[in-house]
Design a protein around this nucleic acid. Sequence first.
DNA 1: CCCTAAACGAGACACTGTCTCAATAAAATG
DNA 2: CATTTTATTGAGACAGTGTCTCGTTTAGGG
Lengths: 152, 152
Amino acid sequence: MRPPRKDQIQAEQQKFHDYLEKANLQLTPGRNIVFQEVMKAHGHFAAEELVKLCQKHARRVSRATIYRSLRELRAAGVIRETAFGEKHQHYEHVYDEKLHHHARCIQCHRVMEFPCMEEDEKYVSILKKRGFHILGHELHFYGLCPDCVMRR
Amino acid sequence: MRPPRKDQIQAEQQKFHDYLEKANLQLTPGRNIVFQEVMKAHGHFAAEELVKLCQKHARRVSRATIYRSLRELRAAGVIRETAFGEKHQHYEHVYDEKLHHHARCIQCHRVMEFPCMEEDEKYVSILKKRGFHILGHELHFYGLCPDCVMRR
DNA sequence: CCCTAAACGAGACACTGTCTCAATAAAATG
DNA sequence: CATTTTATTGAGACAGTGTCTCGTTTAGGG
């Protein structure tokens, strides 16, 4: 996933601000630092990476604030969780949403993305028939990425 | 997923014993207790649930042994991990393997299963073309299960 | 300028899993 | 059978990730 364009950052900022306003929350320095770092990060990142980045700032931001802000960004629809079966949660941006799936290398942990296809609809209709209310889905392949296959 | 039939338990036991022999490991009381509890459990279970179950036995089994045995059972192909984006790992049985996917309720955490279809092959061929060596895949829907939809 | 409520940081705590190390049991050997 | 070697184990320390509490700070609103 390429880094967000300026106008996309703008849009995300708007989204976040709108959310804060609706939820009666203020755009405080702490929240803003977390937001900025999240926008700088691209691809998939772990919460703890963000903790390290945020704590490099002059104004110290506590873990508590960072985790709190991540939840807010999630609620605002700026980032989303992705489950990789590791011990810690990963996030990715939502902007420019072309729904995609993930292939994760079990060796180097790199993640490849590939677009979601309408084939998934068949599953969707099965689940709907069974009364399951779908909020989202993700197809997750695991294996060896091209580089790690070579290295063998 | 229904509980394993007797002959399936037999087969799994054989698999485990074969693995132990090949790996020069012995079928010790500790390992056996873990195996028995794993076979009793069905559906998806977390490591910590198993810890609790195993520790009810007269012969105390330590966390270390349980986690070690779980790894062995995984290596033996008796159980497999499933990533649900929660904080702890889940496992499920491998016996009577009809490959299936999961729909998890974000409210009650129950998991529905549905069969894997050949539609996935399209993704497989895309990834292969890109040089990714696939070891496995899982489609993961999340949302509200029928019961939780009702309860709203 | 004061009052109140929101936001914050520090650190305790909880959970899950790993690791080490000394004690034990079991097998192999003489 | 005694001794040596090796595998296995349990206890608990440790680590990583995330949550929670609580006293303090900050910032508006009056």
